[in-house]
Write a protein that binds this DNA or RNA. Structure first.
Lengths: 330, 330
DNA sequence: GTGAAAGCGCTAACAT
DNA sequence: ATGTTAGCGCTTTCAC
């Protein structure tokens, strides 16, 4: 790998001249700049990241902490981040907290030791319920920018990007109502995440707006293993003409259970679920879905973080971006 | 962040003494070592990665190149890698090739510039069909260790880790036969990947072994969008009593299509598919499945790569590890 | 058993 | 407009 030293020797100039020329300093002659840049190009010169990091104290690396990489939604967000970061010449360090507070703290520490310029995080369930954010709030003093997405805690003063959960579910519910549905059940596998609360609020808001007072008991799913049994029971014991699933598995399962055990009832039930476009095709007929726009959330998040890092005189105040979900409904 | 310099000053010894003590050099007194280590502990000293990289020329970082992060199998492998790497104090840089040759070349270059100690890759479809591996074979001369998993090209002389595709599918097919099935259809969405060829061979081997000469036409699925239509046609035009899916989507879809459009026929058909344990629960009844053991593939891969990197006098010759899939069959 | 000094590749303040 | 120099934090050779 070519170094500044080698370039300098070849061109019979000093190392600093080469460095400055490459960085377009304005006290270097145009002619010199040209010669330097050409040689750098042909020798395929790339600055040594370690020397650069040692000197400038920033790494052009960001960290991402995901609660669960096996959740397709987070994988999609990651994809969006990666794409933008690569383009901007940033490296990405990925950590998985596995919904554990301990793991999350470890991950953040690791990223800190690697002197990342910024961190994009979706907070783990455990951290959220423990409400212990010291490992994150201390980042500011270390000059590490922080951005939250999806699972956003209001206790943290930093930029955030998320779907407008309430509005999205309100819309989806409204569409069900517009198609003539009156008894709409809600199923959730999200526990007491804020995300879930907001989505449920959206659901209730839509019902209220349409003066539907009697809504179906909300069904909380615990573990994937028990789901089948729970759903069967629920279907037997309730009448409904629509179902909205606010996580990205239960809608698929629900439809399949109905198809299997209650084929005579399914034609009267409309189901809509938070799933990825592709996963909507896993069922037959395809599911109606609410698209969380993971890739967009990812690229938008990276963009915002990058602006903070490079200090693009953003407003000092935190920016809270909300995208509305896209709804696909037949 | 504490530095060697600061430790040295506090203890009234030289920087080099501190450095040696921390590295357990054997020309440093036990007493001194103890004092140094204690202080390092309390001050939470961590070596600066950039200084270390600059000096030692290795980064304790590995790169991972995945064809598609949104494929749950690759996400699972990544999880396995991450877990081991974190434990071993390695950082992980992740890149996604999106099945594109160009992207893959870019990713590998990026990783090289970051001076990773090794790369774990599953080669993109395009690269595999182009058969152009220059970007990978040149890694050796740069002292970057390489390991392939899942999509393995025999043209590359490096360690590899994968499922024994042929054997796994032979086993699965045999189980179908043992349960009395005779007309077993195979469906694939894998195109002409070697992985697909091997799996199909396993299928044929099992049929041959059991002297079943007439096997059903193999159904190749193109795009997810067309799948539903293709499957419906296929089901109408063929008689079969079992189906084996060798990718990780089509089995789910096939079962759902049957459930929906041919409920009277499905009880006579056994379906088995390469899906993740959790995804097997997406259908009702749950799918029989072949488990690719992604997490294990990941952790095993990292272990092997790490041994190569740290030169644990492995045999010079490449190691080709094959795990057999776990089959879950009722 | 401990320390001084050089140097990894780079930037930037300060000459010239 | 270009060069000299110091120094980022660390390891390592060589001297004491």
């Amino acid at each position: 790998m070519a170094t500044l030293k080698e370039l300098a020797k070849s061109l019979n100039v000093s190392i600093s001249t080469v460095s400055k020329a490459l960085n377009d300093a304005d006290d270097i002659g145009e002619e010199t700049k040209k010669r330097v840049k050409e040689l750098a190009e042909t020798l395929n010169y790339k600055p040594n990241k370690f020397a650069l990091g040692l000197k400038t104290r920033n790494s052009r690396t960001i960290g991402v902490v995901l609660p669960d990489i096996q959740n397709p939604y987070f994988a999609e967000v990651l994809y969006g981040i990666e794409k933008e970061a690569l383009e901007a010449g940033y490296d990405t360090l990925i950590c998985v907290s596995n919904e554990s507070y301990q793991q999350e703290v470890k991950s953040v520490r690791m990223l800190t030791e690697n002197l990342v310029d910024g961190i994009i995080i979706s907070i783990s369930k455990e951290t959220l319920s423990l409400k212990d954010f010291a490992h994150l709030s201390s980042l500011a003093s270390k000059k590490i920018e922080l951005l939250q997405f999806d699972r956003v805690s209001p206790d943290l003063d930093c930029d955030s990007v998320q779907i407008d959960d309430q509005e999205s579910v309100r819309n989806a519910t409204q569409q069900l109502i517009d198609s003539g549905r009156k008894r709409i059940a809600l199923i959730s596998g999200l526990g007491n995440l804020n995300v879930a609360k907001n989505r449920i609020q959206g659901y209730k808001a839509a019902l209220k707006q349409n003066e539907i007072s009697k809504f179906i008991k909300i069904l909380e799913v615990d573990s994937l293993e028990k789901t089948h049994f729970q759903f069967k029971n629920f279907i037997e014991q309730n009448t409904f003409d629509a179902v909205i699933s606010i996580d990205n598995k239960s809608g698929i399962i629900f439809q399949n259970i109905m198809q299997h055990h209650f084929p005579e009832r399914i034609k009267d039930v409309k189901i809509i679920s938070f799933v990825h476009e592709k996963d909507a095709l896993l069922t037959s007929p395809p599911l109606n879905y609410i698209n969380q726009r993971g890739a967009e959330i990812g690229s938008f998040s990276f963009g915002l973080l990058k602006d903070r890092i490079s200090n693009k005189q953003l407003q000092k105040q935190a920016i809270h971006k909300k995208l509305t979900a896209k709804i696909n409904f037949n």
